[in-house]
Nucleic acid binder design. Structure first.
Length: 339
DNA sequence: GTTTTGATGA
DNA sequence: TCATCAAAAA
């Protein structure tokens, strides 16, 4: 089980360990070094779930604690995940989360080379592949783990294992994963593509989710869409392929990412109803719609009950015919592909 | 970007 | 066979 650390983003004090399922009350005091009178001594109540990789945050104090840009509100409770920023009070005193494996004894821990064996399936549809560099080195992640690792005085080549939900953050920094990059964004191939072509466009700037989007992000989102569209346009067979560009309403992975996915849905990684519905119902929000919403409302809202869309019956996205099982749906899709 | 594995039931 | 659910993994 990983350990959970509450990391002060400005590194003004050492990370605070949150014990699994323990209730930690935090606020003004020596532990946080916050002396601000606006901050209660019992500002927040934190409870970490180290297995599932999140912390529930309850605001106890009167002044606002916020998660990203959203105020929690007194008595309210929210879920705090890696990648998000928690502000103790009045948008001040930023904190992030870090889950990592405990390695009490050096050298005894198992190897965790991240550039190990990758599934064989990906090469099936790959026509072009410029750099075949299979380097084993993994460039150091941008987040400063060292600051949160006081015990690590030796064996610096071993990074702590990141929680799976931070996988995107790790992959986007890995040159061997990057398909395109510029000063604003990076494109990687989806690790488990749900179609013959499936990329993710990620901003270098960490934006945890759609909820954190603000009007100042509009230009960035437009850039992401342009780059995504270019990826689609430049891929082999683009003349006959249809693509959609959009966001999952409720993604599992931290860090905002734009899906660029071809509409064949021909992939062994597409295995269940959730996979299907997350790309063929309103759970998939078009990039244009996100941008329009942000320009019109100043933020992006996700309707209540959106998660229920994942349970809808399987329906063909081309002819809207309902299919009873995944294998039948796949067979049906092959019919559309050949015609 | 969760996937994988296993148990259970239709 | 296939879907659904829960738990584990990294």
């Amino acid at each position: 089980m990983p350990t959970c650390w509450l990391v002060r983003a400005d590194e003004s004090h050492k990370p605070i360990q949150l014990l699994h399922y323990h209730t930690h009350t935090l606020g003004r005091g020596p532990e946080t070094q916050i002396k601000d009178q606006k901050c209660s001594r019992q500002q927040v109540e934190l409870r970490a779930d180290c297995n599932r990789g999140f912390v529930t945050v309850k605001q106890l104090g009167s002044n606002p604690t916020s998660l990203d840009d959203v105020v929690v509100g007194k008595g309210n409770q929210v879920t705090f995940k890696p990648g998000q920023k928690l502000y103790m009070v009045n948008r001040l005193y930023p904190y992030t989360l870090q889950f990592r494996e405990e390695s009490t004894s050096a050298g005894a821990s198992g190897e965790k080379s991240k550039a190990m064996k990758r599934p064989h399936q990906r090469d099936a549809h790959e026509e072009r592949d410029q750099d075949k560099e299979k380097s084993c080195r993994v460039s150091a992640p941008s987040c400063s783990n060292s600051a949160a690792r006081p015990d690590q005085t030796h064996a610096p080549e071993k990074e702590p294992a990141a929680h799976w939900s931070q996988g995107l953050k790790v992959s986007m920094q890995d040159p061997s994963m990057q398909v395109y990059k510029d000063e604003k964004v990076v494109v990687i191939k989806d690790k488990y593509p749900k179609a013959r072509f499936h990329w993710l466009v990620l901003p270098w700037d960490s934006i945890s989710s759609l909820k954190a989007l603000r009007p100042e992000h509009v230009e960035l989102l437009k850039h992401m869409e342009r780059i995504g569209a270019r990826m689609a346009q430049q891929c082999p067979g683009s003349d006959t392929l249809r693509f959609r560009l959009g966001y999952h309403a409720i993604p599992s992975m931290s860090h905002v990412h734009l899906h660029v996915i071809s509409q064949d849905f021909d992939s062994p990684c597409l295995k269940n109803k959730k996979h299907w519905n997350s790309f063929t119902t309103d759970y998939f929000i078009e990039s244009q719609d996100v941008i329009a919403m942000l320009e019109r409302d100043g933020r992006v809202s996700v309707k209540d009950g959106t998660s229920e869309l994942l349970k809808l019956p399987l329906r063909c996205h081309v002819c809207h015919q309902e299919q009873t099982t995944i294998p039948k749906l796949k067979e049906h899709l092959r019919g559309h592909a050949s015609s």
